[in-house]
Nucleic acid binder design. Structure first.
Length: 280
DNA sequence: CGGAGTGTTAGTCG
DNA sequence: CCGACTAACACTCC
């Protein structure tokens, strides 16, 4: 999301919204007239929510959930086809496509396409950030000051839940999803099933460092487009971090560190991957 | 064909 | 308050 936020900020800042076209009612919550004619001041992010800030105090808040995409085109999709090899339902071959739910047109004739296969995602027009997430969000994981080691110790001490669920809990730490949770735990050599309050101070410090490092590396690689490749940069191109994944989605394959077989278990209904030899 | 799995999170129930 | 489970939905893979 940070990748998308940065790219949108660069492209949309200063543009005026000419029109919003809602192809799937549930994908847009708000009034078109509140945003049409308004100018984008900038684009921000909170947890996994992108915030397009307008000059009337309204934010267009976007949550992509599992299969959402935000694709920006200055020219029509036909004129500017993506060169990159593309296949599957998330390939950007034409725009709009069958998964396009909302189209926002700007005064430069550029268009922002909100594609969302499963339709879990949404765009909400809100006055305050508090309206978007039901529960309070924790500090941003990549904000090293807010996500302090001291704060992390406090969070861990309060929970006996598997550590993986705790670092993915947006009300405790904002911005860590399933892929990155798996990767950070591997890097910190901690089993995903370990009760949060069983981590030593040393492990907590290592894990915090791994979270910050992995997220920053993923941002440098412009996101992770694994397997079905739902994640796309706003150009429609894939990210690159999937090339550096160590355990996520690799059940049955050799651990890159020791060669033992990567295992998969279910935690909180999410696939959890780990090396039974390297992680303790 | 059936069932599991899919970068998420809110709601319900005990 | 917690933890466990489910739903929202569409599609691919085995």
């Amino acid at each position: 999301m940070e990748t998308i936020k940065r790219q949108l900020d660069e492209k949309l800042k200063g543009l005026k919204i000419a029109k919003i076209k809602v192809l799937n009612k549930k994908s847009f919550i708000g009034e078109a007239k509140e945003i049409e004619g308004k100018t984008v001041c900038g684009v921000g992010r909170r947890a996994k929510i992108t915030l397009i800030e307008l000059n009337n105090g309204i934010y267009l808040a976007v949550h992509l959930k599992l299969t959402g995409q935000l694709i920006y085109r200055e020219k029509s999709g036909k004129e500017k086809t993506l060169v990159e090899e593309n296949s599957g339902p998330f390939a950007i071959k034409e725009l709009p496509n069958k998964f396009t739910r909302v189209i926002i047109t700007f005064d430069n004739n550029g268009k922002l396409y909100f594609n969302d296969l499963r339709m879990f995602g949404w765009i909400k027009a809100v006055r305050e950030i508090g309206e978007i997430a039901k529960e309070k969000l924790g500090p941003e994981a990549i904000d090293e000051t807010a996500f302090s080691l001291d704060y992390f110790h406090q969070v861990l001490a309060k929970s006996r839940k598997p550590i993986k669920l705790v670092i993915m809990d947006q009300t405790k730490i904002a911005g860590v999803g399933n892929i990155y949770a798996n990767e950070t735990l591997f890097r910190a050599a901690i089993l995903p099933s370990r009760p949060a309050n069983s981590l030593s101070n040393k492990e907590a410090e290592k894990l915090r460092g791994a979270i910050i490092a992995v997220l920053n590396e993923a941002i440098r690689q412009k996101g992770t487009s694994d397997k079905d490749e739902a994640f796309r940069q706003i150009s429609g191109k894939k990210g690159n971090f999937q090339k550096f994944l160590t355990v996520y989605g690799r059940a049955g394959q050799a651990c890159p560190n020791c060669g033992k077989i990567i295992k998969r278990i279910d935690l909180g209904g999410r696939g959890s991957f780990f090396c039974p030899a390297c992680q303790h």
